[in-house]
């Protein structure tokens, strides 16, 4: 196992290299010029050129890429063109809200979706199953921002239970944190609840038709024990796979949820940076997101071995 993890960790380096090259080229070859934005409407072409020179944007693309790789090799993500602050500092300022939102969303989604999926499988074909599946289809269909606005209208403006926007760290005021994070978590969770519920249901139904389930029933074990001890454990691999894949979806969902609820996280940082063409921030964030995604995939592979002893690396 350790050898597997070490091999996968080493494989991350070329993966990140390809991501870095791809992101860099995409940004440099797409239209838009931060120097023009900085210079503003009154600037002369000479002023814009001088700013481009100061920012190093006039250098050949391979030179720019080489410089960036050099700073990366020193553990430095670069300096934001607009704020003049280190990208690592900007990410550090914003990472906590995003991590909190992603964590609460994943936990809430799993806690709700897995039981719902099991119940749907257990009661397959009944009205309970159909009701849960209708909810799952609706969950897939409602865009995150629409659901967000509906929840804000009902629970913030009408009932005044939760604030409209903002974020408070749980380390500063846990009660305030809960008030701020509840609606975004529910909003972002719905699509994952729908996804995980459907997969859990399908996996459990498939497993329930296996011989060992029939054997368990024949031994006189209760339906609850059959479901929880035998069916769910064997259905876990696809469920964990979907949860892992969901992290990629989560990164996209966080961007929208953070905008709707004005949470100062990484999602909003990347959107702002793209609109302003703040290359170092975009490059740094995509690298970080890619790294997270690769690590989550590794984690999922490791968890496979814990839930299914047949899997060996």
């Amino acid at each position: 196992m350790l050898a597997f993890i070490a091999k996968r960790m080493v494989a991350i380096i070329p993966v990140m290299g390809v991501v870095a090259l791809f992101v860099f080229l995409m940004l440099r070859l797409s239209p838009g010029d931060p120097a023009s934005i900085i210079a503003g409407d009154y600037a002369s072409p000479a002023d814009i050129e001088r700013i481009r020179e100061q920012l190093g944007l006039n250098a050949p693309i391979p030179v720019q890429f080489g410089k960036w790789l050099w700073t990366l090799a020193h553990g430095d993500l670069g300096i934001s063109i607009f704020t003049n602050l280190p990208v690592s500092k900007l990410i550090a300022q914003r990472i906590e809200p995003t991590l909190m939102l992603a964590s609460t969303t994943l936990v809430f989604a799993v806690l709700v979706a897995v039981p719902l999926g099991i119940i749907a499988a257990w009661k397959a074909g009944t009205w309970i199953d159909r009701a849960i599946m209708i909810f799952a289809v609706a969950g897939f269909s409602i865009p995150v921002f629409v659901l967000g606005y509906i929840l804000i209208f009902q629970f913030s403006l009408e009932l005044r239970w939760f604030p409209v926007q903002g974020y408070t760290s749980p380390f500063v005021d846990f009660w305030k944190f809960l008030r701020h994070i509840t609606l975004p978590t529910v909003t972002l969770s719905v699509i994952y609840i729908a996804l995980i519920t459907r997969i859990t249901r399908a996996s459990v139904i498939e497993v329930m038709e296996e011989d060992y389930i029939r054997t368990a029933r024949a031994k006189g074990q209760s339906e609850r024990i059959v479901l929880m001890r035998h069916a769910l454990k064997n259905a876990a691999v696809p469920i964990i796979t979907v949860i892992g894949l969901g992290v990629a979806l989560l990164i996209g969902g966080v961007v929208i949820t953070e905008s709707v609820y004005n949470i100062p996280g990484l999602g909003r940082l990347v959107v702002d940076a793209i609109l302003k063409r703040d290359y170092p921030i975009i490059q740094g964030l995509i690298l970080v997101f890619s790294l997270v995604y690769v690590m989550v995939n590794l984690l999922v592979d490791i968890i496979y071995t814990l839930v299914d002893p047949r899997i060996r690396y």
Binding site: I152, L157, V164, Q165, G166, Y261, N262, D272
Partner: peptide, 18 residues
């Protein structure tokens, strides 16, 4: 200065007194 780029959210925050 609390920057709220989403106009709908900004409006709601003002209405809610935030």
């Amino acid at each position: 200065w609390i920057y709220i780029p989403d106009q709908q959210t900004a409006m709601n925050a003002l209405i809610n007194g935030e």
